[in-house]
């Protein structure tokens, strides 16, 4: 595989092509315009912003106190956990 790649570059250089041109032919690249790339990143980052904040909010909502409100930790015994089940 590596030798094939090297040979490909050698042939390209013999033909008088630059490294960039060889790469473009080799990968059959069609350059994506920067404007479209920027718009895609913009949409993805806006979605990530909302998702991240929703995840944080859900995490906060679901990680409330284990014991009932007003309970003193010293008054919690093993029996309380048995009652829970």
């Amino acid at each position: 595989m590596f030798n094939d790649l090297l040979q490909f570059y050698k042939i390209g250089k013999d033909l008088g092509l630059t490294k960039k041109e060889i790469n473009q032919i080799f990968f059959f690249q069609k350059k994506i315009p920067l404007s479209i790339g920027l718009l895609v990143i913009l949409i993805v980052s806006i979605l990530t912003f909302f998702l991240w904040n929703i995840i944080v909010l859900i995490y906060i909502q679901n990680s409330g106190t284990v014991y009932a409100e007003g309970t003193f930790y010293g008054s919690v015994s093993i029996n309380d956990f048995k009652k829970k089940k």
């Binding site: 718009l39 990143i41 980052s45 912003f49 904040n53 990680s63």
Partner: peptide, 21 residues
């Protein structure tokens, strides 16, 4: 909860959005 982490992630995402806009 590490509030600082929430703020930093929000800042980083906002930086990307802001740069593009």
């Amino acid at each position: 909860i590490n509030i600082f982490m929430i703020v930093i992630v929000n800042l980083l995402i906002a930086f990307v959005i802001n740069t593009i806009l």
